[in-house]
Structures are given as structure tokens and as C-alpha cells.
Amino acid sequence: MDPLLIGTVLKSIIVLSIVSALAGFGTYIERKVLAFMQRRLGPTHVGPFGLLQIAADGIKLFTKEDIIPSNANKLIFSVAPAIAAATAFIAISAVPLFHTFEFTVPVINQLVIVPSVIADINIGILFVLGMMAAGLYAPLLAGMAQANKWGIIGSSRTAVQFLSYEVVTGLSVMAPIMLVGSLSLIDFNNAQADGVGSWIVWQQPVAFVLFLIAGFAETNRTPFDLLEHEAEVVSGYATEYSGLRWGMFFIGEYANMITISFLLAIIFCGGYSDIGFVAGWLAMLLKVAFFFFLMLWIRAAWPHVRPDQLMWLCWKVLMPIAVINIVITGLVVMLG
């Protein structure tokens, strides 16, 4: 059989299982980190250091009663969480995670090539952003289908926030695209293979910061988590959800966080190329872990913004800066 096909299927299965497990593990890490930053304990009782809390939460989510409100549109209500999880995983499929490598299965002597990216389309970066953009349908439809005023407010916030910040993500990533001259994330990685000095973040610090901010908004993380801001809109689009359906929203959110962390590492911070004696896969893991930690860290440190501040920030600050950044980069690329 085709060694590449086997490798791709193998990688899809592994990525799917690991990322959905990581969503659970991410909640554990998040609770622990937030607890330490506030001088608390975090989960301690289930298992050593509370590690089995993931399993306990999983059992709870699986066995909880799945309530569908009687006024809700049942079909859309049930489909919406699946959109959240599906778009998040489809987005990951175009992100190169680690090196391409090959090995031989000993008994049947079958060569297997595991590619660095599951779906190697040469416009990977746009595909990932587009798929994450399509992910806005999950909260949007969920909020509209559940016949709950908080849900409606949550979904209208979804539309406003995600649409606006999509502009910033797209524009901010344009400048690195011009520098590299390709839309393929593998080309991005190869362009930064000469060690730390060749990272795009040094040439495009503004784009990096803009992409980071917009990434927080697109993954619904704390300074911008208006979609389900408890103090204002109960739980936003997820108000009426319980059990496994709510869990799928959760998995989708954490998968998106992981995707954004990988994107930040690949586009701006050198990807999976080796740094000195540190192997590429380890460097990649460290970078992704750092960006994931950054999201938790900022959640512990910074307050929310108001919706009007969110819009103000997007359209009057971030977007003009992004456009200016593109113009300057374009001039430098053209003249230089």
C-alpha cells in the first residue's frame, strides 16, 4: 500500500485522539495554573495531584442528562456543537505539526511515511483561517436555535466579534506572507530554518502582536471572551447546553487554542526547525506550550473588555495598524 496514505491516516487518528484528549488536559492545566497564580490549590483530590480530574469531568459530561429546551429548534440545536468540534479539527488538518518522518513496521515490513501536515494544500494558512472563520457558525446557530435571550445576545456577539477580528487576522498575516512569498505553512517553516535569528517575529513584530491579539479574539479567550461572559450574558450561546453537547463546544474551543498556538509558532517563531541542539519536535512543543500558557496567564492577569471597546480596538486601532504594516512591508519588499 501507499506508505504516504497509511501515514496520513495514522496521523489523522493520532491527532484527532490527542487533541480531543488535550482539550480535557487543557482544562486541568488551566485550572492548576489559574489556581497557582491566585495562590490556591486547584484540583487535588481525584488521583495524584488531581490528574484524574479529567476522567472525572469526562464521566460527568458523558453521563449528564442531555436537555433540549422544548421551544428550541431541535435539529439545529443538536447540530451546532458538532460544527464547533468539526471545524476546529478540520482546521488542524492543514497545520504542519512536526517533521515528516518515516519508519518501517517490523512484522509486515511496510514502509510508513508520516507527513508533517495531514492535508498538504499549498494555501494552508488561508485554509486554516477560513475554517476557523466557518467555526463561528457553531455559537451563532447554537445561540439562535435555543430560544433564549442570553443565547441570542451571545450569538450576536459571536457574529460581531469573529467577523471583525477575522479582518485583523487576515491583514496581520498578510505581511509575513509577502515576506515568505507563499501561502503554504511548510514554506513558512522552511523560510525560518536558519535558527532563531531568521524567525519572522524579528522582522514583523507588529504583525506578530496583531495576530496574537486577534488570535485571542478568535478563540474567545479572556480579554475578549464576550461570547459567554458570565457576568453579562449568563453563559451566552452555551446557556441551554449541558452534558456532551456542551463538552463538544469545549473541545472545539481548546482545539482552536491549540491551532492558534501552532500557527503562532509556525508563522512567526520558526516552526519545527531545530534550534541548535534542541530537536525540532521538542522546540515546537515548547513553543506551543508557551503560547498555550500565555493564554492562561493573560486570563489570570487581565480583565475583560467591554463590547464597544472591543469594536473600537478592532476597527480604529488594530485594523489601521495592520494596513499600515502591510503598506510598509510592501514598500520594503518592492524596493529592497
Binding site: 495554573v33 497557582f36 491566585q38 495562590r39 492577569a301 487581565w302
Partner: peptide, 14 residues
Amino acid sequence: VGLWVTLREMGSTL
């Protein structure tokens, strides 16, 4: 400063 304070607290907690 906010980021530093939370990180410092995490260090002193651990």
C-alpha cells in the same frame, strides 16, 4: 505589571 504580579504569585505559590 499585571502579568508580572500573577507570574510572581505563581512562583511564590510553587
